[in-house]
């Protein structure tokens, strides 16, 4: 285990920047966000959690596939190469680190492999960062409901936690081990630090956010059972504006569109985040749309995360980070809906 003084994080950042691309939390107008760091001093670990999830490190809002000239032959289209330096994703909260594992199942673990997700994932070393057990949970969070601890190193290559004015760093994977041993700005941690580290991980499990745990299979089954109870779905979607705020900030929402964006004759075929809350998400060429109503779309979102995903991949597609709740313009709280559904 290694450590550094909290004030010297910029030294660590500078060192990582020398080895590749550093993506870390930066304070911005509306909150913190993960950004590619150009100045080591930008890195700011004094955050609760970021506004946008770190999924964009592997699944950016836009990913270019092909560049084309629409006046030329299809043969002249150029496939866009993805040349990545090693990426260091720094300061990922335990619930978000868990989200990567859930997304892995979808993008590279089953069926066709998404080459972009896979390549970006392989190039990246994840520095997890424990929630501070002395800071109360944000009112929107519910990660402990999904069995994620406030200080779970799972999903990280290197796991970090704050101890007083020091930052402890422990390698979790061989990839993390190799990197950690090469970081000269760090010093060795003490026996005390190691004990603190283990104690904090354990304490993280007794740290409770909202709601109580419910077995995922029970939730999945219940939602399936009430799928056709239109009255329930209409009621819970009365307030929903059907905007995409919740899906765009979500660490486990992966729906996308493939768009051809042309300016004059030159263009790029790219994937762009899409949202099941948008009316045209399921609009077929013929004009037929199976989900024209708000309740159908919100039902899809909730059932997808808590039912279909469990059925298809065995896990709930939610990590309880609370971003959707925090950013909903009308304060819809996704797990409150699940909670209500269980009582139906």
């Amino acid at each position: 285990m290694k450590k550094t003084n909290f004030q010297d994080i910029s030294d660590l950042a500078a060192q990582l920047m020398g080895k590749g691309t550093l993506v870390a939390p930066v304070k911005e107008v509306a909150g913190f966000n993960f950004r590619e760091i150009s100045d080591a001093k930008q890195v700011d670990l004094n955050f609760y959690n970021t506004l946008m999830s770190p999924k964009s490190a592997f699944f950016p809002h836009t990913e270019d596939f092909v560049r084309y000239d629409k006046n030329k032959f299809v043969l002249d289209a150029q496939c866009v190469e993805l040349n990545l330096k090693p990426v260091f994703l720094f300061g990922v909260r335990p619930c978000d680190a868990k989200s990567f594992e859930i997304m892995d199942i979808h993008f590279s673990g089953t069926g066709a492999v998404d080459p972009y997700w896979k390549k970006r994932r392989e190039a990246t070393t994840i520095f997890g960062y424990a929630f501070d057990p002395n800071t109360p949970a944000d009112g929107a969070d519910f990660y402990s409901t999904l069995n994620i601890g406030a200080a779970d190193p799972e999903g990280s290559d290197i796991f970090m936690m704050k101890k007083g004015d020091e930052l402890l760093l422990q390698a979790v994977t061989p990839k993390g081990e190799t990197l950690l041993s090469s970081l000269s700005s760090l010093v060795d941690a003490s026996k005390d630090d190691e004990k603190y580290f283990d104690d904090t991980i354990a304490a993280g499990h007794s740290f409770k956010t909202r709601f109580t745990c419910v077995d995922e299979k029970v939730i999945a089954k219940k939602l399936e059972d009430i799928f056709l109870k239109t009255e329930f779905w209409e009621k819970i979607s009365d307030a929903c504006l059907s905007c995409g705020a919740c899906t765009f900030v979500c660490p486990t929402c992966y729906c996308f569109d493939i768009c051809d964006e042309t300016l004059f004759s030159k263009g790029v075929r790219r994937r762009v985040w899409d949202a099941c809350m948008f009316t045209d998400f399921t609009l077929e060429a013929s004009g037929h749309n199976p989900r024209t109503k708000v309740y159908q779309r919100l039902r899809q979102k909730i059932c997808h995360k808590y039912s279909f995903h469990v059925r298809k991949y065995g896990v709930i597609s939610c990590v309880g980070c609370g971003r959707c709740t925090r950013n909903c313009p009308v304060n819809i709280d996704i797990f409150s809906i699940v909670d209500q559904a269980l009582k139906e």
């Binding site: 979808h106 066709a112 099941c276 995903h309 059925r311 298809k312």
Partner: peptide
């Protein structure tokens, strides 16, 4: 190829 998430019917 089952990635973009829009054509699901149930799971």
């Amino acid at each position: 190829i089952g990635k973009c998430g829009r054509c699901n019917v149930g799971y």
